[in-house]
Computed example of a mutant assay.
Amino acid sequence: MDNRAGEMQVLVEVADRGSFSAAGRALRLSPSAVSKIAARIEARLGVRLLLRSTRALVLTAEGEAYVARARAILAEIEEAERQVAGGAAAEPRGRLRVSASVAFGEHYLVPLVPQFLARHPRVSLDLSLTDSVIDLLGERTDLAIRIGPLRDSSLKARRLSESRRMIVAAPAYLDRHGVPATPDDLDRHNCLRFNFRRSLDDWPFRDPVTGAAFTRPVGGNFEGNSGTTLRRLALEGLGLARIGAFHIRADIEAGTLVPVLEDYNAGDIEQMSAVYVGHAHLDARIRAFVDFLAERIRG
């Protein structure tokens, strides 16, 4: 009998636990049985999936790809059985792995976690905050919150909200260096920039009279990879920062950051989207979380 799903589960356990013996203990199989199953998969595929040494097992590139697809297939099997057993209205349950940027997580997700878990008590939420764009399959993540344009067409996406960008500085910095009246004044200012896209060395603007869009090169003595970092340094009075309005709104209301050059604001919008690997039957816990965010974060 063909039991490829069972074999996939064995290889996933080997990848997760790093050895045949540890995978065998989890599956109640002998290490030799686990080794034979891994060898059988490799023989059938005609490729090496695991590199064996006396100290560890490491996945090859083909092994990484196989395990990533195996996880998705096993998740679909599990969800299909849940739907059949519990119907379309099956209660969301199980571990939900979510990734989000630090700023979005701190300002939006973390305050909402208690409400979501109270609504869905059988879900266990695993939240990681990082400003790196992760591979959902490779990192075994169910869902990620992405800000800005989406580039991976293999992922499904649902728009949650949007936010414009603005240039801000601390009052103490503006007292020392003056308030820029036009983009040309930025030559005399320290501009805090992002380091992950060189195009961000040019800031976009729009002429308040003609409406024409243009960009202006800026420079400064600091670059960072997150809006949270630039916000903190702007609050310290280090310079001007151009970051998303969604996570400096409270600072502006408190007067600890002041918008500048608003007449020249380009009006560019960043979309906030929930992205996930698309399946014919989306797991109930993922659907519940996306619906919850769309309900609470809209606008």
Rank of each mutant, 00 (worst) to 15 (best):
A89H: 13
D201E: 10
E295C: 05
G239V: 06
D2F: 00
R188Q: 13
E270M: 07
A61Q: 08
G18V: 03
R82E: 14
N225D: 14
L11N: 06
R93I: 09
A284N: 10
I167H: 02
R69M: 12
A274P: 01
L257T: 05
Y66N: 01
T229C: 08
G244R: 00
V98Y: 02
F289I: 12
E236C: 04
A212I: 15
N190I: 05
V168G: 06
T182Q: 06
I297G: 01
S124Q: 14
F196N: 06
P111Q: 07
L112K: 00
L293I: 11
E81G: 03
P259Q: 07
H107N: 12
L49V: 09
Y264D: 12
V290R: 06
L238P: 00
L293T: 10
G267K: 03
A72Y: 05
G138I: 00
D291R: 03
E139M: 15
Y173M: 03
V12M: 13
F20W: 02
E13D: 12
A172M: 03
D184G: 12
F214E: 13
R216Y: 11
T215Y: 02
T215D: 14
P92K: 01
E13N: 13
E106P: 01
L27T: 04
V58E: 15
R82Q: 11
Q271A: 04
V133G: 04
V34D: 03
R159S: 08
R55T: 03
D185G: 09
L127E: 00
L125Q: 06
P171N: 09
A144S: 12
A294N: 03
E270K: 03
P217R: 10
Q9N: 12
L230D: 12
G278V: 10
T130C: 09
S163C: 04
V275M: 06
Y264N: 10
R165T: 15
L96M: 11
S30Q: 13
Y264E: 09
I145P: 00
A38C: 15
L192W: 11
D207L: 02
P121R: 04
N3S: 09
G87Q: 06
T215H: 12
E76M: 14
A284S: 09
F194I: 04
A288F: 02
L109W: 07
G46N: 11
A88D: 09
A288P: 04
D268C: 05
E236I: 06
A172V: 00
T54P: 11
E139Q: 10
G46E: 08
P149W: 11
R287H: 07
Y173N: 11
R287K: 14
I41S: 05
H281G: 05
F292L: 01
S21T: 15
L45Q: 11
R176E: 09
F20C: 02
A254R: 01
F214C: 14
F196G: 06
R296N: 12
V34H: 13
L186C: 08
L230T: 07
F289N: 02
F289L: 08
R287P: 03
R71M: 11
M272C: 08
T256H: 07
D16S: 13
H279L: 08
G299K: 07
G24P: 02
